[in-house]
Design a protein around this nucleic acid. Sequence first.
DNA 1: TTATAAAACTATAATGGTTACAAAGATAAA
DNA 2: TTTATCTTTGTAACCATTATAGTTTTATAA
Lengths: 139, 139
Amino acid sequence: MNNYMQIHKYLKQFDIKPSVQRTAVMDYLMTHKTHPTIDEIYSTLSPFMPTLSKTTIYNTLNLFVEKGAVLHLSIDEKNARYDADISNHAHFMCKRCGKVYDLFDLKQELFNKPQLKNFDIHSVEISYSGFCGTCTGMN
Amino acid sequence: MNNYMQIHKYLKQFDIKPSVQRTAVMDYLMTHKTHPTIDEIYSTLSPFMPTLSKTTIYNTLNLFVEKGAVLHLSIDEKNARYDADISNHAHFMCKRCGKVYDLFDLKQELFNKPQLKNFDIHSVEISYSGFCGTCTGMN
DNA sequence: TTATAAAACTATAATGGTTACAAAGATAAA
DNA sequence: TTTATCTTTGTAACCATTATAGTTTTATAA
């Protein structure tokens, strides 16, 4: 079974009808774990899909987020970022270079939804910011 | 000592030169713990300060955040939100009514900055979202 | 297969939050 | 008082996102 069919199956698990465009976007997110912006996704895919519209990227990602297949990250004030890894993990954004990194090795308790009687919590986002090792020369 | 002078002293602690406008904005943030948007701050202050410009609100809040006197919240994708309470606490945003609530009663460990050799972490933002009690009728 | 309806995609325009810029005003120093 | 610096202001520009309407594709059913 090829990758295209695997992604089809994966999308269907989230009640998302596969299409060429949707499959390409999910494929991009799965193979580029860089928390890309809309523009990055569009710029990369566009040469291979000449009729592709940026609106479709917007529509597709809004659908993915709505269906729970993709995380919308608000860590970057300038542009929305997207992440196909929906497992519990946090993010770090370097204030100098702007890269967004995954932080997997944190205690899982961090991601527990607090049980509060006045709030029905659906999602958690844990974001750190500062300088990355590449920018400080400390790695 | 009046409130105006107290706020002057407070701003100076953050190396911020007080001015009428800056004092008014900090006063607003301290007395309105609703995590207001730029527009809300401007709309409220404007009638009392007829020459006030919205650009000044932007400039002022950018300065406050830069100096560490105010937190910029990215929990609301639509508008930046600001919080004069810089102590460790998390936020909850209701996806129906849009209100942003403070969550103070969480374990302080949540706000510990993980010691990672490749990342120099300056700040932490913990955001929850879902439905609030008012919107679900459950309180 | 063909006709019809629904869904998805596309291009363009509109929206709206934020920043850039330049001029005017206020403050501080000499 | 003069000069320099900082702050504020209004306008214009920018740019990410959404709205809209038309086209294309896909699904349904006769």
